[in-house]
């Protein structure tokens, strides 16, 4: 089940990479967050970790529902462009994504026999970090960059839930708090016409 969700997580992220519409991107992000939340719930249930269950719930509520919605509202209000053509050609992206995956597995190889957990989780987290970065790289518009940043947050969470079996509650709350603050700041920043970056 866990592996299945992780696979789904990665799949949604990769799909997001190839999306060229803003709302579709938000949708994939929301799905991505949803899998993450489910993952937390599943692992939390297996470990009987209440904190993690809570985190899962908050993740689903906040990341899968609230943030995509807020972003959608913001994009409407500030008239952000809904066309988000990727800056990197698809041919390159097709090569890059597997390359990143292979690389992260190679990277995680030395730790595979050392920790009790699954080294592949670390590898997948790192690769989703890279993929989110790639998402930021390939778009010049602001909105996809924000989504990229948010999915980076997701990659962190993935690492937190899978590799460490849950971080301290305090940290997770802090991260959520900062996420909210980021949204506020983004809102403030958007108070001007969309910048071409």
């Amino acid at each position: 089940m866990v592996d299945f969700l992780i696979g789904l997580f990665l799949a949604t992220l990769i799909t997001a990479l190839f999306t060229s519409r803003l709302y579709r991107l938000l949708f994939w992000y929301s799905l991505n967050s949803l899998t993450l939340g489910l993952l937390a719930l599943v692992i939390g249930a297996r470990l009987d970790d209440r904190a993690m269950l809570m985190t899962g719930g908050v993740t689903i509520a906040l990341k899968a529902l609230a943030i995509p919605y807020v972003l959608k509202v913001l994009s409407r209000r500030f008239g952000l462009s809904r066309q988000t053509p990727p800056g990197i050609k698809t041919q390159y992206a097709i090569m890059l994504v597997p390359a990143i995956l292979v690389f992260t597995f190679y990277l995680a190889e030395p730790i595979s026999h050392m920790v009790q957990g699954n080294a592949n989780y670390v590898a997948i987290s790192i690769s989703s970090l890279f993929l989110s970065l790639l998402l930021m790289i390939e778009h010049r518009n602001v909105a996809p960059k924000i989504v990229g940043f948010l999915s980076m947050e997701n990659a962190l969470f993935l690492l937190g839930t899978t590799a460490t079996r849950g971080m301290p509650m305090l940290v997770e709350l802090g991260i959520f708090f900062d996420l909210l603050m980021a949204i506020v700041v983004i809102n403030l920043l958007l108070y001007r016409e969309e910048a071409e970056l």
Binding site: V115, G117, V122, S125, I126, L129, L133, M136, V142, K145, F149, M152, E153, A155, L156, L159, G160, A163, T164, M167, I175, A182, V185, I186, L189, A195, L197
Partner: peptide, 24 residues
């Protein structure tokens, strides 16, 4: 400001990523 938002956010996320790995 946007630049800072994004670069700063990436940098900070990297730090957190590192922290989680260290924690792990």
């Amino acid at each position: 400001a946007w630049n800072y938002m994004i670069v700063g956010a990436i940098a900070i996320s990297l730090i957190l990523f590192g922290i989680i790995l260290i924690y792990a």
